[in-house]
Write a protein that binds this DNA or RNA. Structure first.
Lengths: 196, 196
DNA sequence: CGCGTGATTGAAACCCTTCAAGTTTAGTGG
DNA sequence: CCACTAAACTTGAAGGGTTTCAATCACGCG
């Protein structure tokens, strides 16, 4: 139970061993079946999710009914609708499971609680946020500066594991292109004998 | 001297009056002429900038020599290359002044110092980060989901002031389209008697 | 086995870019 | 203050990359 989260806290977040069990006890674990929803549109998101096993995604659906994927989260990633959690707003986004997943649910005040136990945890949280910003900026940079081919190349370079696990049409949605276009990009890369 | 920053700290960051002068004394103020650089490519960014007067931008230049604008910062905004400040990396980006600007320079450890004085400041910093993430996500959403016209409409809706102060070709660069395309979008909007 | 989902492929349409030229605006120096 | 120049913006025509729509193929699952 919660082994992956336990390990993450101790290795990545550098939580002091004596505080580990208190933190792990404060969270709940849940399993989600493939395509089951972790967060629906309009809900106020009460949790940040830590993915122990499986694969999840954060996405919106436009007025025309088109999905736009903002983030994938596989093992050892956090995923949440930060605006909704932090600003207590109704969520504009969905989160669901792409694969059967084992997920840890962190309450909104988890950070506060963890910080009360060991103050260095807030530092780690800041690191997470800074890193997230860096990541989003890279993506914006790619979206305004690169064509379909280069976006895809960047994606498989950054997330070689995901590019095998995520259905192609979802990668297309993440890249902001149509599945047909991605199919053609891949065909062209294969024709040119592209090696990753 | 530093009045805008002083006011910002007390009104927005809710810094306790007794700590204000200590914080304001810890920062330096500088003026930048139009098109003067605040941060060059390859430098490690040592400061976060708070814009008291004027207008600045954060941007990259691609291998082909094309500029891509990641952020504008007018009065009362922060701007910095977070990756460079936080992770001590050489900057991949430029920051320069679009208008003559009066800028406050915050050292890398300003947050730590401010937090030591009043712990609630860290909470405010977290708010800044969360808000930044929300903002970047909105922009990604727009980039993968909207055409040139809607991106522009969204821009002038979000930043009506900026749309008048920023040269059009920079807005185009921010939106990820060419200046020519933006010109045509605007012409079409005018033809349809578009009212903001 | 058949159904549904995902991937592929083709042709036409469309949006946006590119390149080139012309017009307007803004900044500078005489 | 006007004249001059560079930069910014506009406009047109051609071209390219992507989308759209439709049909086909591949595959996993009940």
């Amino acid at each position: 139970m919660k082994e992956a989260f336990y390990q993450y806290l101790s290795e990545k977040a550098m939580v002091h061993p004596e505080h580990l069990s208190a933190l792990v006890d404060a969270v709940t674990e849940r399993e989600f079946k493939k395509s089951e929803m972790l967060l629906r549109l309009g809900q106020v998101c009460e949790h940040t999710f830590f993915i122990e096993q499986g694969l999840t995604r954060l996405y919106s659906i436009s007025e025309e009914g088109v999905e736009h994927i903002l983030q994938f989260a596989p093992e050892n990633w956090f995923i949440s609708e930060r605006s909704s959690v932090y600003f207590h707003q109704a969520s504009m986004l969905f989160i669901d499971a792409i694969e059967d997943s084992k997920v840890v649910l962190l309450d909104r005040d988890f950070i506060e609680m963890a910080t009360a136990l060991s103050p260095e945890f807030r530092t780690y949280n800041e690191y997470i946020l800074q890193n997230h910003i860096r990541h989003l900026q890279n993506r914006i940079h790619l979206l305004i500066g690169s064509d379909a081919r280069n976006r895809y190349l960047d994606f498989i370079r950054l997330y070689p594991d995901l590019s095998l696990r995520v259905p192609q049409w979802m990668i297309a949605s993440y890249l902001g292109i149509t599945p047909e276009s991605l199919s053609r990009v891949r065909k062209e890369l294969a024709r040119q004998n592209y090696q990753p």
